[in-house]
Write a protein that binds this DNA or RNA. Sequence first.
DNA 1: GTGAAAGCGCTAACAC
DNA 2: GTGTTAGCGCTTTCAC
Lengths: 342, 342
Amino acid sequence: MVSIYDIAKAVGVSASAVSYVLSGRAEKARISREKQQLILDAAKKMGYIPNMAARKLSLRNMTHLPEIALCWSPEQHPGFLNTFIGMLQDMTAAGQAREMRFTILPCRNGELEKLGPVLTANYYNGVIVPAVSDDDIEFLKSTEIQAPTVLLFGDIPRYHLVTVDNRRTGAEVAEIFHRHGHRSVAVMQPAYRQMSVTVAQRNAGFLESCEKLKMDAVVITGEPGGPYSNRIEEGRALAGKMLETGKVPTAVFIQHDLVALGALDVFCGKGIRMPEDLEVIVYGNNESLEVHSPSVTTVQYPTEDIARECITVMAELLDKPGAEPVRRILETPFVFRESCPP
Amino acid sequence: MVSIYDIAKAVGVSASAVSYVLSGRAEKARISREKQQLILDAAKKMGYIPNMAARKLSLRNMTHLPEIALCWSPEQHPGFLNTFIGMLQDMTAAGQAREMRFTILPCRNGELEKLGPVLTANYYNGVIVPAVSDDDIEFLKSTEIQAPTVLLFGDIPRYHLVTVDNRRTGAEVAEIFHRHGHRSVAVMQPAYRQMSVTVAQRNAGFLESCEKLKMDAVVITGEPGGPYSNRIEEGRALAGKMLETGKVPTAVFIQHDLVALGALDVFCGKGIRMPEDLEVIVYGNNESLEVHSPSVTTVQYPTEDIARECITVMAELLDKPGAEPVRRILETPFVFRESCPP
DNA sequence: GTGAAAGCGCTAACAC
DNA sequence: GTGTTAGCGCTTTCAC
């Protein structure tokens, strides 16, 4: 890394001159025009990038805020990040949580391991991690993160946890279908490069309950790398697959909102009436499920609650570190609509 | 701010002992159990929060990445943040952009001013700002940000800009309506706490073209603080408002995807046929507009292109600072569907 | 106009 | 086991 000293040496001036020029306060020290240009050119040529850690450290007037790493995969729940930022803004504005700075560490599902060095280097005052796949959980288990760490999924005793009970959600959907007299049901889910543990848990909960309740259940899954350009297309394909099943189920639990939009489109196109011919429950928050015709019964991942809880827990942990690991299991509300009345 | 020295003094040990204990390397220095506990307790009681700037500075083995501030308002395009992170991940993985760290500075529309101190303190190697309201633009104009700064909206000559031509989009919609023989049209937009400049620009472009083309145009807008629980409800209300208009327009440009979902729901409910009775073009990316019945013609905010360009520009700026301000105006593609065929 | 030097809070090598 | 000390890269005061 090139520092102001390197530049100073190259140009033949002192480090402070470089500092003045590069932080735009040249006139304050009345550095000569030519010298300024020399320094600027050298900095550019040498690829100088100011070291913010050093800058912050020496800027004593500014209070330093805790820095939290938010590991994030774009494959996650797409609206969560936005909700999270909104909640942070609201809570700090209302004085409900101390101020913090969130830095996003992008990371694909299953590739949390790549963040290993950053996470273990104690670079952040806190860490928020969605442990989305088995590999991620494995990695976290084998890694000792010093900073207070809040998991969004994946239960590891020594870390804090803010999550929902996916298995129970799956089971509840099965119970509703059973109560409605269905004998043959299905669960539909898109393909994941690395199986998402949350999907797998809901799936397992659903299938277990089906077995207990003596309902036939088929699993309809996309193929990783299948010929779908997006989740809606995948939903269309999966709906086709479901309708080709020998005994077409009379109720289906669709685990992804966009997949649902595609599948519903196919169902409607084939004249399948919902809920009369087919009851549908969707796991997802996409607002359009509300205005769809028929309107769609959903189970919601409670993004706002999760975000609020996450921020609260993190804020508390910063103030009293070393607290006993917290486990907050939040409610996943059912919103009953036409596609599957209560 | 309490430092390890404060703790050391309070407990009566050396700072290095405190450092060892608090960063979990107590056994490495073989600090006695009791002393560890003493230090831990004191840190907790005194509300110690490690200063990450100091930590990073002294951890010499780790390379420091440029830190970019991403000012963000949750009222923005909701999926953009996610797209942005995905794009960042993809581009750095593919070696198309140097690695960077993005820190999110939450900030409501029109309240950019509150970030003034952070932005002008040279705390970040780069800044990305959506200047969404007139107040924001005013603030940016009057502020001198040293770090390379990329605007997502709002044209300020000394900063870089990656954006779309909203005025032209509005004009193009009007031209399409005119070509289709409409004489009476409408533009519909939700309420904003602070008027969004992008909405205002599309609005202006639309109205100007309407005037030029001699079409009657009404503006249907939500009231700030109106009785809508969400954008879909607001769309329903606005649709009602539109239908009460003396001369109901035969084509409408809806500036928000969720508002559109609400409005379309009302139109469908009233038996209004699209496109026969009413042509609809929506500004928005919500996927459900594709599967809506009728499917909806949209103009898309090109999130992926914007994100890619933004990252590219920022990466280049880091390597050669002081470059001439860049202006990248990206295309907003029309996707023609049933609600308004080409 | 310019450079030397102190110090921001922390880590880690080293001496005791 | 524990304390001393030398930086990390930068800003800023102060002497020249």
